[in-house]
Every structure is written in structure tokens, then in C-alpha cells.
Amino acid sequence: MTSFPSSRQTSRRRLLGGTAAGALGFAALGTAMAAGPARSQQPPSGTYRIDLHAHFLPPDYRAALIEHGHFTIGGYPTPNWSPEEAIGFMDYYGIQAQALSVSDPGVSFLGGQEAIDMARYCNTYAADLFRTHPTRFGAFAVLPMPDLAASIAEIAFALDTLRLDGVVLLSAYNGIYLGDPRFEPLMAELNRRRAFVFVHPAAIAPDAKPELPLPDFLEEFTFDTTRAATLMMFTGVTQRYPDIRFQLAHAGGTLPFVSHRIGVASQTVLGELWPDTLPRPSVLDTATQISRFYYDTALSGAPAAMASVLAVTSRDHIVFGSDWPFSAATLPQRGSHDPAPGLSDIFDADQRMEVEHHNPLRQLPRLAEAVAT
């Protein structure tokens, strides 16, 4: 598979600040490993991984992004994508199948019927992929948000007719975060269907964030996932709709780290001002809700991140994610076929098999049946 390493090298050259970001990553990894002995176990062998955080850019979708000025996504140059290159990537890194999703900005950069048509195009394209490559691809449906009526209609078509494996939602749409009461009909429908929902961060409008010389995917994406998850807890979404299984991108952003902090709100003066219409958070209740989220390993396969996740939930709520093709510049150098070697510093081989294979397939029964054939 000679084409994939050269593609990665091209992306590496194009990634602004990649060298600095890599240095920061290695420094953090060194600090985490110094805090305790690493397992340094060998991962399982073979093509076994099930990737629940992997993106695709069908031709018409990518063309529309470029036409509307989206030359970068989260500060990362908008990549090319093809089924052939995706399969090459999977073969190289021991990935049995990917559940594909559309990344930020979804289809919300379009409006009205254009957004509805583009969502249908992407979802149908994905369904065609896992009909022609049934053991290699699944997909999460993109919705024409924030149009709730059209989104609920697309859920029915995508899950009932196309048989996609779940739904992808952005953390916010036009600055309105998941958990806002305006999304209540959508959440009710997802709960009725016991849907698996992948929550992916969204870029914040330039006039709503600090002016820093850093791409959004380094920090802002993690913060936005945290905002969405916290608001869903504080407005009672995760309590009212317990049958939605939410997967939080990138190890939950910063949610594991701030898990105790957000739970003490009711013990401060804030608790006295809490609206009567909202459930009042407590340390115990917040901890329970946080433990019910699923957390993926995308760009987070390191002891510091995984130890934080394990502090707030059990290992069966961790699933593998690669974030490809947006992670192309961060993958190990050519010669290593392990896409996340840092996972072996905290998980042994059996535990990695659980995180990277068994846990994802438990959540996606259609894909599990397909890969078992």
C-alpha cells in the first residue's frame, strides 16, 4: 500500500504548526508516563479494529465545502477522500471496519432544501458504500440541522430505509448547543429509537472566541464537546432520554478533567440561584451521567487522556476512533502499523481488544452482523 504514506506526508507538510503541536504532544506523553510505570504491552495482531470516529467527504460534498470557502476544517486543510484510500488506510493500520461520519460543519453551511438534499446525498452515498463493501464500512447519518422537522424525517429515512448505524450531531448549530430546549423534539425521537449518537465538535464563530494563533482542532474542539455534554446534563437531556447512547469525540474533550468541578455547582451560591425548571446538579448525579457517555480514543490515545476517562467511566464505555483523514499528519511514521501505540501504555492486549473491537461492535449491531459474515 504505497499511496497512503505519501498522502500522509503531504498532509504533514500542509498542517500549520504541526511540528509545534507534535512537540507539545510528546511532552505531555512524557509527563504522563513519568507519573507511573507504563504497561508497554504489545497490541493484538491482525486487522481487528472497529473505528467509530472516521470521516468521509463524498465528491459532491467536498466540492460544496470548497465552493463555500471551507478550505480548512477546524484549521486543518480540507482533505481529499476516496473509498480506495480509506480501505488502504484501514489495511495498513489493522482496522477491520469504519463507521463513517461527516465532520464539522456537517451540512449546516448550506440552507433550506440545499442542506436537506446534501444530507440525503451523503447518507445515500454511505449506504451504497457498505453495500459494496459490507465488511468494511458503516455510517452515522448526517442531518440537515438545525431544521428539526427535516432532520427527524432524515432520521427515519437513514435508519429505516438506508439502515445506517446511528446519527452524528455537532456540539452546536449556529451557536445553539445540544441540550437547548429547542432541540427537544429531536432528542425525543432519538430516544424513542434508542439511537447511537456520535457527538462531534463544531467550530466556534470567529467573533465568539479568543484570537489565538492556533487551529481549532488543537483546543477549541475539545472545549466545545465539553460545553455540549455539560449542557445536556444540566438541562436534563441525559436524564429525560436515557436510551440515547452518546459517544463523545476525543475522549470527551475536557469533560473527564472537569467532572468533579461541574458537579459541585449545587454546593455553591450557584445552587441557590438554580432555575426551578432544571434538575439541580450534584456530585453523585453528575458522576452517574458522565459515566454513561461513551468516549472515543481519536487523537487521545495516550495515558493522560485514557486514565482520565477511566477515572469517570468503565472500560466498556471506551471505543476506538482514528479521526482519519483529518488525523493523517498525527499518525505514527511509516513502518508502524499501530495507529495509537500510546494505548498500550495503559491497556494490555486483551483490554485493547475490548476497546478497539468488542466495545464498538456492541453498540452497532448491524455492523457487527456484517463483519461477522
Results as ranks from 00 to 15, higher is better:
Q247C: 15
H337L: 08
Y295I: 01
D350L: 09
M353D: 05
S282G: 14
L331A: 03
T330Q: 13
E354P: 01
L331M: 14
D348G: 05
F320K: 11
A311F: 06
R245N: 14
G321W: 04
G321L: 10
S282H: 05
A328Q: 10
A340W: 00
R352T: 03
H357L: 06
R261E: 10
S308T: 02
S336Y: 03
P281R: 07
T277I: 14
Q247V: 14
D345Y: 11
S282I: 02
A307Y: 04
A311V: 02
G342Y: 09
D285N: 12
L299R: 00
H250V: 08
I290A: 05
Q247W: 07
E356N: 09
A328K: 00
R292F: 06
Y294Q: 00
V269I: 14
P275Q: 07
D296Q: 12
D296M: 12
Q351E: 15
L270Q: 13
P256F: 10
P341C: 03
A340G: 03
M306E: 05
S327G: 04
A340Y: 00
R261V: 03
M353E: 08
Q267F: 04
L331W: 04
R315C: 01
F326V: 10
H317Y: 06
G301H: 03
P325Q: 07
G252L: 14
A249E: 09
A311M: 09
G335E: 07
T330K: 03
W324P: 01
S327E: 10
F257Y: 15
D285H: 11
R334W: 04
W324I: 11
R292M: 11
V355T: 02
T288S: 12
V319H: 05
A307H: 11
T330D: 07
P275F: 02
D285Q: 14
D296I: 06
G342H: 09
D285C: 05
A265H: 06
P281V: 04
V309L: 09
G253N: 13
R292S: 09
Y294R: 03
R292K: 15
E354T: 12
I262S: 04
M306H: 04
D296F: 09
D296C: 11
I290Y: 07
D350F: 06
F293G: 00
T313V: 05
L273R: 15
R315H: 00
V309G: 01
D338S: 08
T313Y: 09
V283A: 11
P332L: 03
P339C: 07
D338Y: 07
P279V: 00
H317S: 05
W324C: 06
I346P: 01
T277H: 09
R280Q: 06
Q267K: 14
R261Q: 13
E356L: 05
S291C: 06
D316F: 06
S300Q: 14
T330S: 14
P279A: 00
V309N: 00
L343M: 15
G271A: 08
Q333E: 05
T297V: 08
P303E: 10
R280Y: 01
L255K: 08
Q351A: 07
A265I: 13
S291M: 12
